[in-house]
Amino acid sequence: MNQPQTEPVTAHAERGYRKPDATARRQRMRDFQSQLSERMQQARISTREQTSQLGLQIGPEHCLLSLREAGEIVAVGTIAGVPLTQPWFLGLANVRGNLVSVVDLAQLRGHGPTIIDKQARIIAFGPSLGFNGAVLVSRVLGLRDVAAMTLQPGPVEGRMANRYRDTDGTIWRQLDVSALIADPQFLQVGE
Rank of each mutant, 00 (worst) to 15 (best):
I45W: 01
T6N: 10
V135W: 02
D104S: 04
A124H: 13
G81R: 14
L92D: 01
V9R: 10
L175G: 02
L180M: 15
D176T: 07
I115F: 06
T51I: 07
P8A: 10
A24E: 06
E49W: 05
T85Q: 00
Q152T: 05
P4M: 15
F89G: 00
A13S: 08
Q185I: 14
M160Q: 09
L90E: 02
A43M: 05
L187C: 07
H111M: 11
R163Y: 06
I181E: 00
R25C: 15
I45S: 02
Q42D: 15
F125A: 05
G55F: 02
L151S: 04
A179F: 01
R26V: 12
G126L: 06
L90Y: 01
I79V: 14
M29C: 09
A80C: 04
L84H: 13
Q188V: 08
E61Y: 06
Q50V: 07
A179V: 10
L84S: 13
P127D: 13
N98L: 13
E7S: 14
G110F: 13
P20Y: 03
V103K: 02
D21V: 08
A43E: 04
N94H: 13
Q33Y: 09
S52Q: 14
N132L: 06
R44P: 00
P8Y: 07
D145W: 02
G190W: 14
P184Y: 07
V189F: 03
A148N: 07
R121W: 04
I171S: 02
